[in-house]
Amino acid sequence: MKLYFSSRHIPALAQLPLQQRLHKLREASSKLTGPEKMLLNLVKLLVLLPPFVLILRLSDDWTAIIWVALVLLAYPLLLRPLQYGLCEKYISLDRNQ
């Protein structure tokens, strides 16, 4: 599985405009299998859990809010490439049919 940081880098979507790329990605994400959806949800959980733990530490150390912001900024940087990589095979299948 390749990781793509932009939908423009997916070969099957490279020539399409943004709206069509997003539409194809939505269709492909609806075709993900159960284990693939579970993997995405686990990654979401692993990325979103630390900010809540850090928020609990705000009463002890106010600098925890900086770490919360950094972790939340990392959310799309970690999740989008994984989602694009998983969806790419369904976009390719849809294009060949």
Rank of each mutant, 00 (worst) to 15 (best):
93 L>T: 00
79 L>R: 04
62 W>T: 05
46 L>E: 15
1 M>W: 10
70 L>N: 05
92 S>Q: 06
40 L>E: 11
17 P>W: 06
7 S>M: 13
77 L>V: 13
80 R>H: 03
23 H>Y: 09
64 A>T: 14
60 D>C: 03
76 P>L: 08
90 Y>H: 07
63 T>I: 02
63 T>S: 06
61 D>H: 06
79 L>K: 10
2 K>P: 07
60 D>P: 02
48 L>Q: 10
80 R>P: 00
86 L>K: 02
47 V>P: 01
9 H>F: 05
30 S>I: 03
13 L>M: 10
63 T>A: 03
8 R>K: 14
97 Q>N: 14
25 L>S: 08
66 I>T: 13
91 I>D: 03
41 N>D: 14
60 D>K: 11
76 P>C: 08
33 T>L: 14
60 D>W: 11
47 V>W: 02
34 G>D: 12
50 P>H: 08
30 S>R: 11
58 L>F: 13
27 E>H: 07
4 Y>M: 01
96 N>I: 05
26 R>D: 15
85 G>K: 13
72 L>W: 13
28 A>I: 06
19 Q>G: 01
13 L>D: 10
11 P>N: 05
29 S>R: 09
2 K>T: 08
17 P>G: 03
10 I>E: 14
76 P>E: 08
87 C>A: 12
45 L>I: 14
3 L>P: 00
16 L>C: 04
43 V>M: 13
48 L>N: 12
93 L>V: 00
42 L>T: 09
39 L>S: 15
36 E>S: 05
45 L>A: 13
78 L>R: 02
12 A>E: 15
60 D>Q: 14
87 C>F: 01
61 D>W: 08
55 I>Q: 02
49 L>V: 09
93 L>I: 01
17 P>C: 05
94 D>W: 00
90 Y>I: 09
79 L>D: 03
29 S>Y: 06
42 L>A: 10
47 V>F: 01
68 V>P: 15
75 Y>K: 05
62 W>L: 03
50 P>A: 08
60 D>V: 06
52 F>N: 06
69 A>N: 04
3 L>G: 04
86 L>Y: 03
64 A>G: 04
46 L>A: 15
63 T>L: 03
15 Q>G: 12
39 L>N: 15
2 K>N: 05
5 F>Y: 14
13 L>P: 11
35 P>W: 12
52 F>C: 07
9 H>R: 09
45 L>R: 11
40 L>P: 09
23 H>W: 07
15 Q>D: 15
40 L>M: 13
61 D>K: 06
49 L>S: 08
95 R>M: 01
63 T>K: 08
81 P>K: 06
44 K>W: 03
93 L>H: 02
